[in-house]
Design a protein around this nucleic acid. Sequence first.
DNA 1: GCTGGCCTTCACATCGGCGTCAAGGTTTAC
DNA 2: GTAAACCTTGACGCCGATGTGAAGGCCAGC
Lengths: 133, 133
Amino acid sequence: MRIGELADRAGTTTRSLRYYEEQGLLPARRTANGYREYDEDDLRAVNEIRSLLAIGFALEDTRPFVECLRAGNPTGDVCPASVAVYRRKLDELDDCIARLQAVRAQVAAAVERNQGEDSCCKRSPTRTSRTGC
Amino acid sequence: MRIGELADRAGTTTRSLRYYEEQGLLPARRTANGYREYDEDDLRAVNEIRSLLAIGFALEDTRPFVECLRAGNPTGDVCPASVAVYRRKLDELDDCIARLQAVRAQVAAAVERNQGEDSCCKRSPTRTSRTGC
DNA sequence: GCTGGCCTTCACATCGGCGTCAAGGTTTAC
DNA sequence: GTAAACCTTGACGCCGATGTGAAGGCCAGC
């Protein structure tokens, strides 16, 4: 299949696929006219990449999983290198969660201190903003 | 005091202070020669900004706190607008923590599935990478 | 008067994973 | 033959907070 179909089937864009190729994660055969040509294995690789990205892995961290798949394994996570990434991610997640929980506690305490307070303020206008996690 | 001293005392850089000014968070008086001149209130404002940034607030989210301080309040968080930001941040933190915990569980399960496994792989090299939370 | 250490503004670089456009080649359908 | 729908490479834009550097002004001490 060509890049457009692969993108559609994987629920992504051609731009992303070319980017993965550029990063050495998705080498592509070329047809005579220079078009990239992909097969079902490539689709599996892209799905692996996408599902890992979706849970917050960096693209680079998906590499062992993709290589594991390419090596002929049923899934990308049966290889030691993949499991190593998983473990590192677990540590990072634990650190991150702990930090966020500490911040949460700190913010919650601050809210409590200043909630019913008439210790209010003297002026200051209002505004809005956006999210981001 | 001038910008270099303020930066030193606040534990940041002149670049950052100029950026805060550019964002309208830290207006500066100028001396005759064009140098920025700051006082102790400005130091407090910068400290407020820095401590909020340090716990993951966006610069824009520090605005109500700074304005609250500027309005003459003892701390930046006694104003309703500040508390509103706190509350929104709490929600964001809860969402974020929940997502990360879900991911953590998913990754932990995957590690468990593939840990002692001789279901190993067939080849695939090794690599390294870096952190980031 | 000269050196060094401040200060000024302007503006480009960083990181990651793309979006998006430009300018062009190819192939298919009518 | 020509329009439509693919494909190609290349390159700039984005976001946020800041690093970094260039080119120049100002001031204190020697």
